[in-house]
Amino acid sequence: MANILLTGGRAPVTLDLARVFRRAGHTVFMAESLRGHLSQPSNAIKANFLVPAPRQEKEAFLIALKKIVAENQIDLLIPTCEEIFHMAMAHDELPLFAEPIKKLKQFHNKWEFVVHAVDNDLHVPETILVQNQEDLLHAYAQWRGLVLKPVYSRFASRTLILPTLQKASSSLTFSARQPWVAQQYIEGQAFCTYSVCHNGRITAHTTYPSRFTAGRGATIVFRHVEHSAIFNWVKSFVGQNKFTGQIAFDFIQTPDGQLFALECNPRATSGVHLLASHPRFAESFSNPFMDCITPTGDRSYMLSAAMLLYGLPAALRHGGFRDWVKTYFSSDDVILDFKDPLPAVMQLRSVLATRAIAKRENISLLEASTFDIEWNGEG
């Protein structure tokens, strides 16, 4: 049995991972920069450590992590959120289940990911790097409908879908360090994936459609589907890049079956929830030679608070209330666990802590959830 250190305890996926590793007999520790985070009261965690904010205090954050690793004889350090990019800068000094920053940056940066995929003969939408007004005009001359997003962003919080040229011109702020990408708009069904990988081999994988979301980006209801074309795309990408760690992709499939990868998240995502009940999921992080596992059963899982806060208003606006009711009452909440009840009982504390950041920084709740950990190419 191993000593496992997780970071990103604010995220429901991290709570689920803590429970997974504890059920498998491992000892779980948690390091977080958000006070009162979601996972803090979980009985799956032996000890919680409050660490400096990686975005604002990177050096102090890394020093704190190294101390926790040494003093608690940590065997494996698993990042889950965007703190991974700050940790990857000290890759050789930590027992990190992740790639070095040079490789992670290629996939996290939305322009570099597209270039990389094209070089590997993998399908992505036609894309233009937008660094100034001239590039923007070129994109609008190229396509009637397009999507604009910063090369570094999350939850689609700043994504513009089918904007007019006037709206785009007034919304975009250009800088050399923070360019945008323009992509041809593609109509179709959205899918997300999540995989655990070792040197190009996939040991755990799930694909799930994106139907209910928080805002435009983060999926909040999860049900595994078998999709061989998507799995083969991921398998090819992971294999060609000899990737180790957790990795996720967003896809769009057109009505005639064409498949395009929109972007990559080289970290944990909500696919964890679909694999958490598999008896060998914990093993997939430590056994690079095991066969790839996929979720068992046909259960639907959800973030119930997000379904109420985001899913219900969207359903009422767009005439999907009946579908929302059916989904809500047939899905299991990923936070509620009667053997570990306190995270669900006390989750409002984490929401209030995030809300305080949102108010202080004058940003949205989603943006506040990553304010102290996100990475936008710095350093």
Rank of each mutant, 00 (worst) to 15 (best):
M1G: 13
A2V: 11
A2G: 01
N3S: 13
L5P: 03
G9P: 12
A11R: 08
L15P: 00
L17P: 07
L17S: 08
A18V: 06
T27E: 12
T27G: 01
F29C: 04
L34S: 09
L34K: 04
L38E: 01
I45K: 08
K46I: 10
A47Q: 15
N48C: 15
P54R: 05
A60C: 02
A60W: 01
L62V: 14
A64G: 04
A64W: 08
K66E: 11
V69H: 06
Q73H: 14
D75Y: 04
I78A: 05
P79G: 06
E83R: 05
E83I: 07
H86M: 01
M87S: 11
M87F: 07
A88S: 13
A88R: 02
A88E: 06
D92S: 13
P95Y: 03
F97P: 10
K102G: 10
F107C: 10
H108P: 02
N109K: 07
V115P: 00
H116L: 15
H123E: 14
P125T: 11
T127P: 04
L129P: 09
Q131E: 15
N132V: 10
Q133A: 13
E134H: 07
L137R: 14
L137F: 14
H138F: 09
A141C: 05
Q142F: 00
Q142R: 15
L146K: 06
L148G: 06
S153V: 09
F155W: 08
L162G: 03
T164Y: 06
Q166K: 12
A168W: 00
S169Q: 14
S170G: 01
F174E: 10
S175W: 06
R177T: 12
P179K: 02
V181C: 07
Q183N: 08
Q184T: 11
Y185M: 12
Y194A: 08
S195P: 14
V196Y: 09
V196T: 15
R201I: 05
H205M: 02
T207C: 15
R211Y: 08
F212T: 02
T213W: 00
A214G: 09
R216P: 12
R223W: 02
R223E: 12
S228V: 06
S228F: 03
F237P: 00
F237A: 15
F243D: 00
T244L: 01
A248P: 02
F249W: 08
F249C: 10
D250N: 11
F260M: 12
F260R: 13
C264A: 15
N265S: 13
L274E: 13
A276I: 04
S277F: 04
P288R: 07
P288W: 05
M290Q: 05
T296M: 11
R299V: 13
Y301M: 13
S304L: 11
L308T: 02
Y310C: 05
G311S: 07
H318D: 13
G319R: 04
Y328P: 00
F329G: 00
S330E: 04
I335Q: 02
K339D: 15
P343G: 11
P343M: 05
L352V: 10
T354S: 02
T354I: 08
A356K: 12
I357A: 01
K359S: 14
S364Y: 07
S364T: 15
S369I: 02
D372M: 04
N376W: 11
